[in-house]
Amino acid sequence: MSTYNSQNWDEWARKTLEGDKSAYRRLLGELQQWLTAYYTNRIHPAAVDDLVQEALIAFHTKKETYEPSRPFGPWIAAVARYKWIDYMRKNLKHIELEIDDNLTGADDTSGLYARHDVERLLRHVPKEQAKVIDMVKIKQMTVAETAKKTGHSVSSVKVMIHRGLKTMRGVLEKDLAE
């Protein structure tokens, strides 16, 4: 397992900027392992490979923003974090679209990943909002069923879900700012 503080990373990253393919290959190999470990505990396991690829491509296309006089670890960590938060934002957006289009419970793959990942953010949301999001998005109940069970109107359930998702987005923004 590659560690975050690998001392070789700084040197390989510097050589990569100079066009050294052998250093680049070694760095990518270690980064692939590190990124896989980084994302494994954060997102649905089936989506990890995709996100690792996205982060490696981001490294490839944006490597000139790495300043060789600084350590490489914080730079790649910031890239990994940005890609993760961007992915989570897309998931929240996906869920909002489902709610708006009354596609709750749709059994598509991205919806499945989104539901899995959103579960992790629920603890940041007020109890009542978390409850309806959990019923609709995790337990796969329809908005109408949730409304009946909680005693709220359908529109009120939708508003609560939107507010909850907005709070979650706020958590992600805050996370990115830190």
């Binding site: 066009g19 491509i57 490839h60 000139e64 790495y66």
Partner: peptide, 22 residues
Amino acid sequence: MTKENFSIDSLVDNLTPVSPLK
């Protein structure tokens, strides 16, 4: 480079020297 044609080899093959953003 896109996710469709992604591989470590293709990234390495596409490497060219770049000047850091100053």
